[in-house]
Design a protein around this nucleic acid. Structure first.
Lengths: 212, 212
DNA sequence: CACTAATTCACCCTATTTCGCTATTGTTTC
DNA sequence: GAAACAATAGCGAAATAGGGTGAATTAGTG
């Protein structure tokens, strides 16, 4: 029996969800609340396995509430549901500790499936959300794939790497077995290609644009 | 009609997938290949909408192949499938540009559903994978807020920030309305606290340890 | 009040960096 | 075989950075 609590400010929706859970086999509704003002005592009084959380709510919104829940009841899973398809929401929801993110266009059966899915250790997501998560993930973690390497040559990349490592010209020259003047030339060329004018700027650009 | 190409080194599986696609309504198989050696010319000769890509393959593995595909045919969607449930794989697959990631334990119907799902703009994932993606996302994007700041003072942090921005001592002094010797002192103290001996090293440490 | 930390500034000296120009040697490309 | 590019190297200058030492001011704390 999966115990589910509902936080949803729309009265009609809230009662629909409640009814859905109560009539479905294997699910119970431990509470259906219109806001998150007394969230912690409410969940203490009526414990649950999963919270179905609306994002758009007056007072404490769904993201903040998720954070609160994970702080106080880390084992409770939070399923975010929203009408909006917005990157910032998705991002914040994941960071707040949500276990799933579904759109309100989902069918009744879809809700039950998502809840069961989360309960089984999955992270149900509307397909479109999944795609956005993939893309957010990729962009936030690997911005360099979209970024060409400024046409640095192999040797220039090596020199830049050493620069990032905080080495001096002299040390880099020794490391690469070339004359210090060669390093000077390489660094001049690197600066030109990166459009920077100092080592610190080059290092920042190298790391941020993840050339290195 | 969704056109699907298969890359899978296991002959039995490869032919099973091929048969599945050919008998299912709305799907065609444009090719079933045991390795990725001639991937680009093969996809050029037989274009497809979606590639079903195994990760574990001799020669070019599925991740590299995905990268190749996205470089040469950015509009082609890649569905990764694997027997392994490993964070590094998931991470790399997403970064390589995969549109979905499913485990081989999926049922035949599940495959068709995943392909249709990807084709419709979603990112099909096995539920467990989805959970891992959420967690990876959260961990990678919310690095430990517990990161100590090496006890840098406010002013030192400002100076370090300017250093990261690639500014010279002179510019930093102008920016903070103090004498250049003051900046020198701050930077000396910053270097001592970070245990570094050059601007480039300090910048790398600042960014990597996310002080800034 | 005495003590400490943070911030400020100065002077000196040396090392390093940045940038100008030039040039040779291979390799690859057309 | 000319053109383009990568990698190498040199010279010289001006600017910047790095490190030593010392010290005044301010703010907060027991």
């Amino acid at each position: 029996m999966i115990q589910v609590a509902i936080f949803e400010d729309n009265k009609h929706l809230r009662e629909t969800f409640k009814l859905l859970l109560e009539t479905a086999e294997g699910y119970t509704c431990t509470g259906a609340y219109p806001d998150c003002r007394d969230l912690v005592p409410q969940l203490e009084a009526s414990p649950c396995d999963i919270v179905l959380m609306d994002i758009e709510m007056p007072g404490i919104n769904g993201i903040k509430a998720t954070r609160l829940i994970k702080e106080n009841f880390p084992e409770v899973l939070v399923l975010i549901q929203t009408v909006f398809f917005e990157d910032a929401y998705i991002f914040d929801a994941i960071c707040a500790g949500a276990s799933g993110y579904i759109l309100k266009s989902t069918t009744p059966a879809g809700y039950l499936e998502a809840i069961a899915n989360a309960n089984a250790g999955g992270s149900p997501m509307t397909p479109g959300i999944a795609r956005r998560v993939f893309e957010l993930f990729k962009n936030k973690l690997q911005p360099q794939l979209t970024n060409d390497t400024y046409n640095l040559t192999n040797q220039e990349k090596k020199v830049l790497q050493q620069l990032v490592d905080g080495k001096s010209y002299k040390l880099i020259a020794a490391e690469l077995f070339v004359a210090i003047d060669t390093i000077k030339t390489h660094i001049r060329n690197i600066y030109a290609k990166l459009h920077v004018h100092s080592g610190t700027e080059a290092v920042t650009k190298a790391i941020r644009d993840k050339i290195i």
